[in-house]
Design a protein around this nucleic acid. Structure first.
Lengths: 104, 104
DNA sequence: AGGATTGTTCAAGTATTATCGAACCATGGC
DNA sequence: GCCATGGTTCGATAATACTTGAACAATCCT
């Protein structure tokens, strides 16, 4: 019943630009997105920029990104793999991610 | 002394990407930016998407945009003119505004 | 099965943001 | 000078968002 294993992800058609912008507007979340731009990572591998971050806090950061449609969070083994929904975002908001990731 | 006439604007060099993204992440502020993309407007002309908006609220929306470096607010006659800092933003964050404004 | 590992969710406290009326300020025109 | 116009700032309240420990869930491994 409502296993936590598979988390809900919005369809890209119902993702709003403002929600994506909001998700990216936090430095910690943006940093996570930058890390994920290099390829999928487990949650443990991700967020190394701040190793002291409690796992509940980290989980919350990913939740915001996931609910905004920026990131996909899927179970793998005993952990989870995160990846940027890059192709989908590029289709929905052409150039957005490129420009954000290009900014120093 | 500290006349309100001329409001402080950040140098583009000290504008942070996350602040810009945050400023754009609110639907009302984003709508204002869309209106300003067509050219400078007085505050009265701007924000017509919600005519019932109190002027203090509207002023606050502009303040957030101004402090994030998105908009310039300058006195003109008895009122004020607002304009998007488009060229500067394009230089600092190439493609960002384009992609945001292009999104439907 | 039991324990270790990896996260998620809940709840509570804190902090940041939004909203809007009222007071205030500057300018233009009479 | 005085008043109307156009907008900012202040102050209070409401609404969101962030942070974190503790409890819980799923999986792997022996």
């Amino acid at each position: 019943m409502a296993s936590v294993t598979s988390l809900p992800h919005p369809e890209m058609s119902e993702v709003r630009l403002t929600d994506v912008l909001f998700a990216l507007s936090d430095p910690a979340r943006l940093e996570i997105v930058r890390e994920l731009a290099g390829g999928p990572l487990s949650m443990a591998e991700c967020g190394t920029f701040n190793p002291a971050l409690p796992k509940s806090t980290k989980s919350h950061l990913f939740k915001v990104l996931r609910e905004a449609g920026v990131v996909r969070n899927e179970p793998q083994g005993r952990g989870r793999v995160l990846h940027l929904r890059r192709d989908e975002l590029d289709r929905a908001f052409p150039g957005l991610l490129d420009s954000v990731l290009a900014a120093e």
